Each structure stands twice: as structure tokens, then as C-alpha cells.
Simulated assay, not measured.
Amino acid sequence: MERPEKNPLKIIWKVKSDILPTSVWILWVLSILALTILTFAIPDNIVKVNFTVLSTTSFITISVSALAFTIAMYSFGREVYSEEDLARLYSSDQQVYYGFLADYLFSALSWSVVIVFSVLKLMLSVNLPEWAMNLIRILYLAQIILASVATIAVVVKNMSRVTNKIFIKSVQISQSQKDTNEE
């Protein structure tokens, strides 16, 4: 048996197709396209995208809080599965095991990218044309949306895992009660 992968980027890469549903990726790309069209193709007197809401300092605070939340969700997930459960999962289906880890890693990575963008925005003063700055703002906002969706996906998947674990346990309890009654 091969040793488990420890590199977070490789873990995410191994299960990249399972991190978020295809429909979420499509909606994310469509939101980027919509923002781009609203920013560059629609005249400002009809619709003006207000990028001043992208306060760098507030997104640093939000990102750090989201990273802490992701760690808390990982702890919650670890409470659902014992070490034995995870070892059994790894030995039977590594893809599912890596998917479990990748959910948290992807969310943390996404928020880390937001933090890096935010810190760079505070540190660097760049003189680019307005269209280039707007394009960077669109990418920054898209990253924030992706990180938020990834965090929500972690919560949903954790709730699903808990439900599945409770169902399996309830079946075991029912079976043991049935076996006890038959004796």
C-alpha cells in the first residue's frame, strides 16, 4: 500500500472534480462573465458596478474568520469519523479519503488566496489603466465568491456526513435490537 499524500495541493488536484459540483463551477464562471459584461459592456448610466465595497481590511478579517471556521469544521468532521473510520476509508477508497481532506483544504486555500490578494492590495500601489484595475477587481470578487461557496459546501458536506453516519449507526442499533429480540 502506498503512503498517503501529504501535499495539500496534490490532494486537491487528485480529487479536483469532486470538490464542487459542476453546476457550481458553471455558475461561478457565469457570475464572472456577468460582472465583466456589466463592468465593460453596459454603459455606467444604465448599470455601474460599485467596486468600492471591496474593502481590503474587512476582507482580511472575514478571511481569517473563515479560515478559523474551516478549521472548526475540520474538527467537527474529525469528530464524526474516528481514526479507525478514516484508516478504513483510506484502505478501501483513497479517492473518498482524499475528497474528505480536499473539502477543507480547498476552502482554506481559497480564503488564503483572498488574504494574499488583500495584503498585496494594501502593500502595493499599482498604476494600471482603469479597465485593468476593474478586471483585477472582478477576479478578486470572483475569488471571494468561490471561497464563500467552498465554505458553504464544507458545511453541507459535513451535515451529509453526520446524517450518513447516524443512519449507519441507527441501522446497526436496529439490527442488534432485532438480534436481541430474536434470542
Rank of each mutant, 00 (worst) to 15 (best):
V15H: 13
T56Q: 00
I37S: 15
P21L: 07
T70W: 01
L35C: 09
P8E: 11
I60R: 01
I60F: 04
S23A: 13
I42M: 07
L67D: 01
T52E: 08
I12F: 01
T61F: 11
I37L: 15
V64P: 00
V15A: 10
S31D: 05
I32E: 03
A68D: 00
T39C: 08
A41E: 08
A34T: 14
A66F: 04
W13N: 15
P4D: 09
L30S: 14
N50D: 14
S23C: 05
F69P: 01
S17W: 09
K16I: 12
P8C: 08
I37V: 15
I26D: 05
P21R: 07
P43G: 09
I60P: 01
V53W: 08
I19M: 07
W13K: 15
V15R: 11
I62W: 07
T36P: 04
N45E: 13
A68V: 02
K6G: 13
I32P: 02
N50M: 00
T56N: 00
I26T: 08
I12Y: 01
I62S: 03
T36K: 06
I11R: 01
V29A: 09
L30I: 13
S17K: 13
I32W: 03
V64L: 07
K6M: 15
V64C: 00
A66K: 02
F40V: 10
F59Q: 03
S63Y: 02
W25N: 11
I11C: 03
V15C: 12
S58C: 00
L20W: 04
K48D: 12
F51D: 04
L20Q: 05
K6V: 14
I62L: 14
A41G: 04
K48C: 09
T39G: 07
V29L: 14
P8S: 09
T22F: 14
L33Q: 09
V64F: 06
K6P: 04
D18R: 12
E5C: 11
P21V: 04
S65N: 03
F69T: 03
F69E: 01
N45Y: 13
E5W: 04
A41F: 11
V47M: 04
K48R: 14
N50K: 06
L9E: 11
I26S: 04
S65L: 12
K14D: 15
N7H: 15
T70R: 01
K14G: 07
I12D: 10
F69G: 02
W25A: 05
I60L: 12
K48W: 09
K16C: 09
T22Q: 06
P4S: 13
W25F: 11
A66H: 01
W28H: 14
L30E: 08
I37E: 01
N50A: 00
T36V: 05
V15K: 12
S63C: 06
V29D: 00
L38D: 14
E5R: 08
V64Q: 00
E5G: 04
K14T: 12
T39P: 10
I37P: 01
L38P: 02
V53G: 05
E5L: 14
I60A: 02
F69M: 08
K6W: 09
S65P: 00
